[in-house]
Structures are given as structure tokens and as C-alpha cells.
């Protein structure tokens, strides 16, 4: 099992190197935006991976409330943290892209704003995990995760409407404007490699959580034998 995981890490690193090569050197330069457009190959797969993580977080939380097993709680904790990491990447690379293309760092458009709100929700999730004590953490966190997940589509819907009412500044290009097949290929390689990076990080974080639980169990065993007083 461990060897399999190490093999997977090596594969992921290879994929990441290849997909970065694809993004920087193989994919053609976009005509209107120029090289900046290449940020897209990191930006969008990060967003995708964050989305996958948050979906995992939601599912694990539901399973936890139902079965009350520590494994799904550990998975929920892991996916929330990794999702946060990728979401942070999205929120930083987005403005870096926007500045040269749109001339502004930030616009309150639906996708950006939803990502920001998503990020805020999971920050509060991770804070809750930190601020609640002992055996209560898991239930409370799972409940909040469900709230957060239910909230996201509503946020998206409301901000879409908000924007159509108040037209936003120049929104040129966008990634849907008929991608070149070579671009598409580079994009999918990156999508794959980022997903793998997400999986590796999640597995690591999950194992960390389990190890921590193990230490707690050891402490518990010691306490049960009466040595802890």
C-alpha cells in the first residue's frame, strides 16, 4: 500500500512536470492576451481541484453524521484543508491574471465572488475545527460543512443576478472563446496533474489525521491504565 502511494507520488510529479511543460512551451500563445493566458492552465485546474475537495468534504461530512465513524471525519478534515489551499491559489492567481488583461485586480463578478465566499466559509470551517474541544468538533464541523455546501449555489445565483443588474467593468475574452485543440490538450494535462496533486495532499493530510488520532489513542490507553494522574 505504501509502495503504491509512493509510486503514485512519483507519477504525480512526472505528470506535473509534463503538464507544466505543456502549458509553458507546447500550448500556443493566445492572440489577444498573450502569455498571461497561460496562467489559465494553473488557475482553472486549481479551481477544479478545490471544487472536488469541497465535494469530498461535503460527502464525508454527511457520512460522518450518519455513521459517526472517525475515518470520514478525518477525510472531511483533510479535504477541507487541501481545498482551502487550492482555493487560495485560485484567489491569488485570478487577480494576477486580471490585472494585465482587464486592467483591474478584482471585480465582483459571479465566479470570483463565489470563490471568495467559498473560501470564507471554509476558513470559518477550519476555525471551528480549531476552536471546539474534543469529541464535539466532529459533529459541529460536519453540520457547518453541510451549511456551507448548501450555501454555495445560492451565493452563485445571487451574485449572478447582482451582476446582471449592475454591469461589471470590461470582461473581455474568457476561457470559453473556442479553445485551440493544442491548448485544450495542455489544459487537460494540467487538470489531470492538479487533480493528482490534490489527491496526494489529501491522502497525506488524511494519514496525518489518523496518526494524530493514533497518538491520542495511545495517550488514552495510558490514561486508562492510570498513569496519567
Amino acid at each position: 500500500m505504501k509502495q503504491l502511494f509512493i509510486a503514485f507520488i512519483v507519477l504525480t510529479l512526472g505528470l506535473l512536470a509534463y503538464s507544466t511543460y505543456q502549458a509553458l512551451y507546447v500550448a500556443p500563445t493566445e492572440q489577444t492576451m498573450g502569455d498571461v493566458q497561460r496562467i489559465f492552465y494553473y488557475h482553472v485546474p486549481s479551481a477544479w481541484t478545490a471544487g472536488v475537495c469541497f465535494l469530498v468534504n461535503f460527502l464525508a461530512s454527511v457520512v460522518y453524521l450518519w455513521k459517526r465513524n472517525t475515518a470520514s471525519d478525518a477525510l472531511a478534515a483533510a479535504s477541507a484543508e487541501v481545498g482551502m489551499t487550492f482555493c487560495t491559489i485560485v484567489l491569488i492567481t485570478g487577480p494576477i491574471w486580471a490585472r494585465p488583461v482587464w486592467g483591474i485586480w478584482w471585480t465582483w463578478d459571479a465566479r470570483l465572488t463565489t470563490t471568495l465566499v467559498l473560501w470564507l466559509i471554509y476558513v470559518s470551517y477550519l476555525m471551528l475545527r480549531r476552536f471546539s474541544a474534543g469529541g464535539q468538533t466532529q459533529v459541529l464541523a460536519a453540520a457547518l460543512a453541510i451549511f456551507g455546501f448548501v450555501d454555495v449555489p445560492i451565493v452563485y445565483m445571487s451574485i449572478r443576478w447582482f451582476r446582471t443588474q449592475h454591469p461589471s467593468p470590461v470582461m473581455g475574452g474568457g476561457e470559453n472563446s473556442g479553445l485551440d485543440p493544442v491548448m485544450l490538450q495542455a489544459f487537460f494535462w494540467n487538470l489531470l496533474s492538479f487533480t493528482c496533486v490534490g489527491i496526494v495532499l489529501m491522502v497525506l493530510r488524511y494519514r496525518l489525521q489518523r496518526l494524530e488520532e493514533n497518538v491520542e489513542a495511545k495517550h488514552a490507553a495510558v490514561a486508562l491504565q492510570g498513569g496519567s494522574r
Binding site: 465566499v117 470564507l120 466559509i121 476558513v123 470559518s124 457547518l144 456551507g148 450555501d151 445560492i154 451565493v155
Partner: peptide
């Protein structure tokens, strides 16, 4: 407020 505000944004 830390929990309530993000969820209440919409």
C-alpha cells in the same frame, strides 16, 4: 459572527 456571516452573504 465568524460562522454566521459567511453563510449569510447571499
Amino acid at each position: 459572527p465568524l460562522l454566521l456571516f459567511p453563510i449569510s452573504i447571499p
